Amino acid sequence: MRKRPPEAMSVNRAHGGPLNLGIEPPGPMETVPLRLIEVLCPRMFAHCPICGDPATTEEHVPPQRLGGTRMTRTCARCNNSFGTLLEADLVDWFDEAWSTSSFQSDAIPGRRQTSRLLRRWTSDGQFVFLPEGRCDPAVGEILAAGGDVTLEVSPPDQNRCRLALLKSMYLGLCIKAGIPEGEPADRLRAELLAVRDAKRKADVPVSPIALGLTVLRHWGDPITEESVVLAELLPETGPVLGTLLAGRVFVSASSSWSEATTEPTERLVYQLRVGAPVSGEVATVHPEPPPKRARRRGHA
């Protein structure tokens, strides 16, 4: 399993007291009671639940990068295509991250890129960016110089993210009750197969079923450590059956189908006013990074 990025941390500033950061966005949140019904156990199929071809590869539900485990089998084409076309958007949404970000200012010529920015929030609603992965060293110089800075980011695509959740929800229901036949399962599979056949991310078609799902995110530690749990939302309007993925994301088994459309996600541009640098030390990080392993030295 991948190392999880920090969701919360506390920084002891040299001047000004501690700075506490968290992944949960500020403002009012919708809270709905959730009832866990049944933990689902792995179930392997002879044929791919999505396309019907021989199932030859083990499938993580939800994706491993969200904390999923091997729960079933699909064909290699479905497994690989969905991972390539959809998974990055789902992981960025889950991690509150923006990909392919760039900074620009008059202090340093040209755009300077970071591979990924984690967005975290202070208790008073201010946001902080944490670079993850490769980062042009000049980004630090741009921020240290302060002044007017242009930030461009690529937010996760809503349609591709919802399609990734639709796939995991569908596989979860197959694990519970077997591969369904007839409508509405045929229409659902048709929309998933249209994704699989796309040549690139930009060609992934809009999915009315995926955009009509009820999706709720739980902030904080997982409700359960199980990969997939059959669960039920209990809003005032009536119960909604679905799956709880990785203990944090509820996805409904029903969809408010419509001729939904969505515009392609475009890069966002922010004009920032950066002040003087602030020094400090990281005091706590959650989740804690795994301990480093000692390396053994061999003898020739």
Rank of each mutant, 00 (worst) to 15 (best):
G242W: 06
A185I: 12
E183M: 13
V195S: 15
A198Y: 04
T214M: 08
V240F: 10
E225M: 15
H218W: 05
L192N: 01
G238F: 05
S227L: 02
V228F: 12
P235I: 10
T243C: 10
E183N: 13
G238C: 08
L244A: 03
D186P: 09
H218C: 08
V195P: 11
L234E: 15
K201C: 09
V195W: 02
T237Q: 12
V215F: 12
E226C: 09
L216T: 04
R187I: 10
D203I: 05
R217A: 08
A246S: 14
E183T: 10
A210D: 01
G220E: 07
A190Y: 06
E183H: 13
G182I: 03
A231M: 08
R217V: 02
V215A: 12
A198P: 06
L188H: 05
L188G: 14
L193E: 11
L188V: 15
E225A: 15
G212H: 00
P205H: 00
V215L: 13
W219P: 04
P222W: 06
L234F: 00
K201A: 15
A231H: 06
L188E: 11
G220Q: 10
L211G: 07
G182D: 07
D197Y: 00
L211N: 04
V206A: 09
L193R: 10
V240K: 14
R189A: 04
P235H: 09
V228M: 12
L230F: 10
R200A: 15
R196W: 02
K199H: 12
P235C: 13
D197T: 03
L234D: 12
A202F: 03
L241S: 11
R196I: 03
R200G: 04
L213G: 06
R187S: 13
R200F: 10
G242D: 09
A202D: 09
A210Q: 01
V228P: 07
R187D: 15
L188T: 15
A190T: 15
R200K: 12
A194P: 08
R189I: 11
L193N: 10
S207D: 02
H218I: 06
P184L: 03
R200H: 11
L230V: 03
S227E: 02
S207G: 15
I209N: 09
H218M: 01
G212L: 01
E226P: 03
R217I: 01
G242E: 08
